[in-house]
Amino acid sequence: MKYNMLLIIFPLVMVGCSFSTSTESLTDEIITPDIEKIEDVGSEMITHHHMYDNMDRGNHDYVDKTLVIDPNESEIFRGDVVFFINEDGEKDLSRVVALPNETIKISNSQIFINDKKLDTFYGKAHRVGLDKDSYFKMMDKEGNDYDKEVMKKVFDYNLKEKKLAENEYYVISDDWLRGNMKVLNRETVIGKVIGYTK
């Protein structure tokens, strides 16, 4: 009798558990990987020549470009590239993936926000614009010398759930190997990158 009860209860528990895991995803229909060229830079804008490749998606995005930053944009959205002061007092930039009061988790380099999969071009690790399989195939086919173990760690990265405070954002550079992955306090943000001049 006890065995029969277990046979009945166990499937019910398993079905109940399956409903607690969200299959919903979070998309971004507005932000694209492209960076806009700004012809007329207003006097209220800030310019910054960015030399680092932390935002490279395979087209040298943001690299060796004079970026235009709007310091007056008070509202920051998911997907925005922000210009900020880092821990060393230097100016840096990265993409916002999680907003204040949200919970972020990363599982095998896939970002989840409040248990929803971040299903957008910046929601998962890549290297020079390529996903894990495409990257390793390309590197091996071309006979490139690279540290495969380091790249496996990038593509298999995990972050335990982290709840952000009301003045915190979570930022990740577009190239996970080369840039930031951290909590960013709103007070350190100088402005939003809106494009480049040259």
Rank of each mutant, 00 (worst) to 15 (best):
N144W: 12
L159D: 05
Y170L: 03
L159G: 06
N114P: 06
N167S: 14
M138Y: 13
V97W: 03
I69H: 02
K152G: 00
N180C: 02
K163N: 09
E102R: 10
N114Y: 02
E161G: 15
K117I: 04
L99G: 04
Y170K: 08
M151G: 02
P100D: 10
L159Y: 05
G129E: 06
D92R: 09
V81F: 02
D88W: 07
N167M: 01
V81G: 01
Y170P: 06
A125V: 03
E102F: 07
N72Q: 13
N72P: 01
Q110F: 05
K105P: 02
K182F: 00
R186V: 12
F155W: 08
D133S: 14
V128F: 15
E142F: 12
A125N: 11
D145N: 13
N180I: 00
N167F: 01
T103G: 00
F77R: 13
G89Y: 10
Y169G: 04
S173A: 12
V97M: 06
V128Q: 11
P100I: 08
D174A: 05
F121R: 05
D80C: 04
D92K: 08
V183S: 09
H126I: 07
K182W: 00
V150D: 08
F112G: 07
V183Q: 03
N101H: 06
E90H: 11
L93T: 01
I104S: 10
V183A: 06
D133K: 15
L93S: 10
L164N: 10
F136T: 08
K163L: 11
L99P: 06
D174V: 04
G129I: 05
K163T: 13
I104G: 09
N86P: 05
N144E: 15
D115P: 04
L130F: 09
D80E: 05
V81P: 00
D70V: 03
I111T: 12
D133Q: 15
R186T: 10
M139H: 03
K91N: 14
I85A: 01
N185R: 03
I69L: 05
E102I: 06
E142N: 15
V183Y: 01
M151F: 15
E142I: 03
E90I: 05
K148G: 00
P100H: 09
K182T: 13
K153R: 14
R178E: 10
G89M: 08
S74R: 12
K152Q: 14
D174Y: 03
E75C: 03
I113R: 11
T120Y: 11
I85L: 09
G179P: 04
L130I: 00
D80F: 07
K162C: 09
M181H: 14
G129N: 05
I106V: 15
K117A: 10
D133E: 15
D140L: 10
M139P: 01
I113T: 11
K162R: 12
A125L: 09
G143L: 02
L164A: 09
N144S: 12
K137A: 13
E90D: 14
I104W: 10
I85M: 10
V154Y: 04
D88P: 01
E102P: 09
D147K: 11
F112C: 04
N72F: 11
D140A: 09
I106C: 06
I85W: 00
R178D: 05
V96R: 03
K148T: 03
G79F: 07
K91H: 14
L184N: 07
F136I: 04
I172D: 02
K105H: 04
K152Y: 03
K153W: 00
K162F: 11
D174C: 05
Y170F: 15
P71M: 07
I111D: 04
E161L: 01
